[in-house]
Design a protein around this nucleic acid. Structure first.
Length: 646
RNA sequence: GCCGACGUAGCUCAGGGGUAGAGCGUUUCCUUGGUAAGGAAGAGGUCACGGGUUCAAAUCCCGUCGUUGGCUCCA
């Protein structure tokens, strides 16, 4: 007998060789029906794996993330089989489950697969699934495994197997299909009731652009057809929140082929919104002891050679600007830090003068790869809400924590609650990617982790994600399509002060090197507005939205009164406009709704007589007929309740 | 940069070897209206650009540019 401990702490005895499914059955038939995966002593096992020793068992159903993972991974086998049957001679590589679904990377050889082929693949895969084939794991010797795939001419699987130890290699069979696999399957293919191929994309073998490019087939599957339908509806809904679509509809920004790829043009309403965001941050920064500075858009090439940016990015970026003078070259600035460093270096400092905090909404230019450009989230010219703090090593912890506070204030005021924090440290195995002394790196990384921990931030540490000159703490937010984007960033830097020879005089009357913090709570204005658009679906907070109210005269007769209302709203600092078009009230309301204007103020005969306005809130709520003063009070209250003070 | 898809009126999109369609918007006129589309008429397109095939190309082929989903990259 073996002792099995379940997640609730209960311990039950089973015969040696019992499977997770047996355990499930002993608890209840219902559970047994729903169990699709399990882990034993923190290792994923099959539901039929015989358990040979005492241990902790967790059973997973579709409702668990681990259950979904097994489900999707299992589906990838079925889809792979379908692909093999439809396109003989293809070479399969890897097919893992991902956050939403799975993919399979395939070398299709001569075949090309596009959207038109999806229905056939789905049909085939579903046919296979309906066969209710069991997933069966078996151990294979390294020699046999290599022989199997050498025989198929599949160099990818051979490469994978070569990196595995003999004795730990397993194959998984179902129906006529066999795949190299370490396990974690649902009991049989029949549980998969709905399969959707979502898209195909190129992907380099092992993620290295020097390797051959494979075709990645993305898909998702569900135990019920209804769940697939719901998922597809969700995707449709997400598309409606896409900032590129909303940006066009709300007339916030545009792009022009003549101006150039990735160079956003801010339209009046977008510029107004952005300006308001900048004012919001400037106010908080002033309280936090920052000083504004202004620097030009270009700098001599030597400046970036000194900073190390030129060596790192020079050839892959906008090329130097030449002047009539021989050998004189300027770069469009890709970063504001060297300019701010020169501001710092323009006079000597005592330790008593520090920290110095220089802030600037600095526009920078980076030649991003064309395939990377995406709406406002990835562009070639953008404005950072940048600042650089120069402080003594003693002040670093406190300063860093203050920046975390500021960043959280910014995210909180704008309703971002579902962000994640990531500490990006260097990859010790790739020292060539970084500049500077390893001791300083250790200090900087520790400083960030300490500050984040002391602030109670929930963060993950990512190796190899640091900037080349220092580690950082990033705040990440997901877009409408589920992709993660970096918004705010805080970076500790010992390197640039060294490269530029920055000093201050300490209490010991000796010269010391200051530490720098680079930080941008929004990150870039472009990206921040993009994610704010997707986050709010265009329903910006009242304090931020360009048009807070629209006055809708019932007919031309009430235009004069509408103008009067507008004037008095302006006196209350409420941003409003009048819809004087020759249209019915119904139509004006419809369009104001589509433009997501928070308040619609209908004025007709009755309002004109009594000096009131009929207030309709975006979404349809009727706030009744009230005076302009009452309305102004209402607006003010709402703004004060969302806009916290710092 | 790489792989796939796409590019038709201001916008959203249909069509597809015989030189263009819808809805919305816009313009003019009628209508003067009460909480998500009042009515009528008109204007508007080198079908991204450049080549090729063809009697004939918006349609097929190639290239370029742009957009897009991924991959790689992201100071």
């Amino acid at each position: 007998m073996i002792k099995i401990t379940l997640p609730d702490g209960s311990v039950k005895e089973f015969e040696q060789g019992s499977s997770p499914m047996d355990v499930a059955r002993s608890i209840s038939e219902g559970l047994a029906r729903n169990v699709i995966s399990a882990s034993f002593n923190d290792t994923v096992v099959e539901t039929v794996t015989p358990l040979m020793e005492d241990g902790n068992l967790v059973l997973y159903t579709w409702n668990d993330a681990a259950g979904k993972k097994a489900f999707w991974h299992s589906t990838s086998h079925v889809v792979a089989q379908a692909l093999e049957e439809l396109y003989p001679g293809i070479k399969l590589t890897i097919g893992p489950a991902i956050e939403n679904g799975f993919y399979y990377d395939v070398d299709f050889g001569e075949h090309t697969v596009s959207e038109k082929d999806f229905p056939a693949i789905e049909k085939k895969a579903l046919e296979i699934a309906r066969g209710k084939h069991d997933y069966k794991m078996r151990e294979v010797s390294k020699a046999d495994a290599l022989a199997y795939y050498n025989n198929q001419g599949n160099e990818y699987k051979v490469e994978l197997i070569e990196n595995l130890e003999d004795g730990e290699i397993t194959f998984c069979d179902h129906d006529t299909f066999t795949d190299l696999c370490r396990g974690g399957h649902i009991p049989n293919t029949g549980i998969i009731k709905a399969i959707k191929i979502l898209n195909v994309a190129g992907a380099y073998w092992r993620g290295d652009e020097n390797n051959p490019q494979l075709t990645r087939v993305y898909g998702i599957s569900f135990p019920k057809q209804k769940e697939l339908t719901e998922y597809l509806q969700l995707l449709e809904e997400a598309k409606k929140r896409d900032h590129r679509k909303l940006g066009k509809e709300l007339e916030l920004f545009t792009f022009s082929q003549r101006v150039g790829q990735g160079l956003p043009l801010w339209l009046p309403k977008g510029a107004e919104l952005r300006e308001r965001l900048e004012q919001f941050l400037k106010k908080a920064q002033k309280k936090a002891g920052y000083e504004m500075v202004v620097t030009p858009h270009v700098g001599q090439k030597e400046l970036y050679i000194t900073s190390g940016h030129y060596e790192k990015y020079g050839e892959d970026s906008f090329q130097p600007i030449r002047t009539p003078k021989a050998d004189e070259e300027f770069l469009l600035k890709p970063m504001n830090c060297p300019h701010h460093i020169e501001i710092f270096d323009s006079r000597p400092y005592s330790y008593k003068d520090l920290p110095k905090r220089y802030a600037e909404f600095g526009t920078v230019y980076r030649y991003e790869q064309s395939g990377e450009l995406h709406g406002l989230t990835r562009v070639r010219g953008f404005t950072q809400d940048d600042a650089h703090i120069f402080c003594t090593p003693d002040q670093l912890n406190e300063e860093f924590k203050n920046v975390i506070d500021l960043s959280l204030y910014v995210l909180g005021s704008l309703g971002f609650e579902n962000f994640t924090a990531q500490v990006s440290v260097r990859d010790p195995e790739k020292p060539e990617k970084y500049i500077g002394d390893p001791d300083n790196w250790d200090k900087a990384e520790q400083a960030i982790i300490d500050a984040a921990t002391e602030k109670g931030l929930d963060f993950v540490v990512e190796k190899g994600e640091a900037a080349f000159y220092g580690p950082k703490l990033d705040f990440m937010v997901k877009d409408a399509l589920g992709r993660s984007w970096q918004l705010g960033t805080i970076q500790v830097d010992y390197n640039l002060p060294e490269r530029f020879g920055l000093t201050y005089k300490g209490s010991d009357n000796e010269l010391h090197q200051p530490v720098m913090i680079h930080r941008a709570p929004f990150g870039s204005m472009e990206r921040f507005v993009a994610l704010l658009l997707e986050h709010t679906g265009g329903n910006f907070p009242l304090w931020l939205i360009p048009d807070q109210a629209i006055i809708l005269p019932v007919s031309e007769k009430h235009e004069k009164y509408a103008e009067k209302v507008l004037k008095s709203l302006e006196n209350h600092e409420i941003r409003a406009l009048v819809d004087k078009r020759n249209e019915t009230v119904g139509k004006k309301i419809r369009e104001a709704e589509l433009k997501k204007i928070p308040f619609m103020l209908i004025v007709g005969e009755e309002e004109e007589e009594k000096g009131t306005i009929a207030v309709r809130r975006h979404g349809g709520e009727d706030l009744g007929k009230i005076s302009i003063e009452e309305f102004a009070g209402l607006v003010e209250n709402e703004i004060n309740s969302t806009l916290k003070s710092f």
